[in-house]
Design a protein around this nucleic acid. Sequence first.
DNA 1: GCCCAGGTATAAA
DNA 2: TTTATACATGGG
Length: 279
Amino acid sequence: MRYVHESGCIRINEIGTFSLAATLESGQCFRWRRKADGYEGIAFGKYLYAEQRENELLFYCSEKDFLNTWKDYFDLERDYDRISDELISIEPVLQEAARFSKGIRILQQEPWEALCSFVLSQNSNIPKIKLSIERLCESFGEKTEYGYLFPQPEKLADLAPEDLSPLRCGYRAPYVIAAAKSVADGDTDIDRLRKISVEEARQELCRVHGIGVKVADCSLLYGFGRFDCFPVDRWIKAALAAYFPNGTPLIQHPYAGIAQLYIFYMMISAKKGDKERIS
DNA sequence: GCCCAGGTATAAA
DNA sequence: TTTATACATGGG
């Protein structure tokens, strides 16, 4: 990865295969908005407008924010082309999904935001999840000149479920509060979850009321930097059975999560009727 | 109206 | 240990 800094804009190149659109619309994050030529969003308390042109990324932000926040958020220094080749060499069947999902990255989101977002995501759909999260931020997040920040768990921990009525998130309200309390109290220790085995981390998260394997796995992968987490929920199980009828060693791979995202992204795109992009 | 949504908790087999 | 059902809400 190389970049140059010129008048409020960071021009980034030599990042390998990268797709801003695929990454931000793959269902791993919920707060980015598509604008005319790019995307805008807020994470780690910072605002960013980003565009992609050919093989160059344009980030409109300070060099400090780029180096401290966005470089890691977009996982720009990891060699996805190499990882992708390796995953395909292990499972050639994955090639179709990998080619379709070209340029997808695993974002390094804030752990609490990811956990809270996926708690809200259960039995819902992406537009509705986005709506709930937007209302959560507007109701409880700090207001800045660019928009609302994601509220910290401490802000939500002592609320009653009725207090979350503006979110219109139904039965998920007590789940959100339970998760917030658990993180605020240190009962769920985010640094610890990054270090212990995935299976242990999954079990630890599942002790929280309203968190099951699906929410735990997505949070670990998209918020806790656990690339070795291969979510095995209903959907992915079905996809796995189709792709790998005899099982696959990919589940144990240190980058298992990337393989999973390839498959998942292809499936949601197919669902959206985006058939022509598949072929 | 009816059905479904990358789910989870709870109660029954 | 496995299998059904309720749960709130919005969109197709």
